[in-house]
Design a protein around this nucleic acid. Structure first.
Lengths: 208, 208
DNA sequence: CCTACCGATCGGTAGG
DNA sequence: CCTACCGATCGGTAGG
């Protein structure tokens, strides 16, 4: 309806996400966001009411983005043939990897406003995490997955670890020498998750 | 030498760590730290020069604390018989678990000032992470550890994941239902790390 | 969407 | 270790 206004709102939200992710909400003045978006501070306040309103709008934007992306990503993973759990794990990991700034924003929000973020995310993610935990249980019942894995704890651990690798990996890597790349860390996460989940084959095939 | 002054400095540092961890540096006024320590703001500035000086002193305190604790923790783990790698992993994890506020502070610093923190931590931690990576290599050469593990990436991953579980686990858990406790997540991290590292026994014992 | 203005709070200093 | 004070910046409003 109003192309011009939507344009400005989008520009503000884009710069807000970028700056909130980089410096945190408390460390970012709405003045600096307005300047980055090419407008004045009162204009930003006109569009979002207040700094808190802008923060909420940023969160809603992120969650909406996930609502659109997650089903597609997980469907792609599932379509690779049956309950390919390591493809699901890979999907979770790649999801954060696609936009490291978003991963950092989420980590910051989990530290700053865990309850508010929790309410928005829980509604969106619970169906998917249930799916993953249930798939693990099914695999355990059929013997294809290790029986000693805790489905819920494993699911949470993978989410936390994928977040940490993307949001902190570049810096955590420098604590080790030679520093592994974020790609290498992500690959190792996938390997670790796969090995920790797949049951060793009882009847081993002939050795090569 | 000056008991009274050290007392005040300690009180300031204690409250600064607590508030920086909870709200971030940008989200914490030195006024609020001074009030929590029972002094006025100019007194805090007298002791630490500036807010930036206080932040640096907080980081130094944390790193010094680790310098004292880490060798003991890792020696305890190593003394449990040979190169018990899962005990080392457990030590890393428990290290953060002991004080979740510190884990949150570290995550915040990795987001806010990765270079400054990196310089302080690298010096302290590189010897230990080298030790861990080298122990993995030795285990791989002897066949007791999986050859497909990447020693440096694995080490970094464990550090990141242990941090994430302690700093974010309480909130990440609520994205799954039923929410796993932080203890359960930590136990799962240890299980995952162990399975992903230990080579399966080639000659399986008689089945039970 | 802007200019002009507001009170509150910020980190820091002077001076004792 | 305090009282008194500083300029700068903060988020937000008035009015157009």
């Amino acid at each position: 309806m109003n192309q011009q206004v939507d344009d400005v709102r989008t520009r503000i939200l884009t710069e807000a996400i970028r700056l909130f992710a980089a410096r945190g909400v408390a460390g970012t003045s709405i003045q600096s966001i307005a300047a980055a978006a090419g407008i004045t501070r009162p204009t930003l306040v006109y569009h979002f009411g207040s700094k808190a309103g802008l923060r909420t709008a940023v969160l809603r934007t992120v969650v909406d983005h996930w609502r659109a992306e997650l089903p597609r990503l997980l469907a792609d993973a599932a379509s690779q043939g049956g309950p390919r759990l390591d493809a699901l794990v890979s999907a979770v990991s790649n999801f954060f990897r696609r936009d490291p700034a978003l991963a950092r924003l989420i980590v910051r929000e989990m530290l700053d406003h865990p309850d508010e973020l929790g309410i928005m995310l829980r509604e969106e993610l619970l169906p998917w995490t249930r799916l993953l935990a249930e798939a693990i249980r099914v695999g355990q019942a059929s013997g294809s997955l290790r029986s000693d894995a805790d489905p819920e704890a494993f699911t949470t651990l993978i989410i936390s670890s994928a977040l940490a690798v993307v949001a902190l990996g570049a810096h955590a890597g420098s604590l080790v020498s030679p520093a592994p790349s974020v790609d290498a860390q992500q690959a190792e996460l996938l390997r670790v998750a796969r090995v920790a989940l797949l049951a060793p084959r009882k009847t081993s095939p002939e050795e090569g």
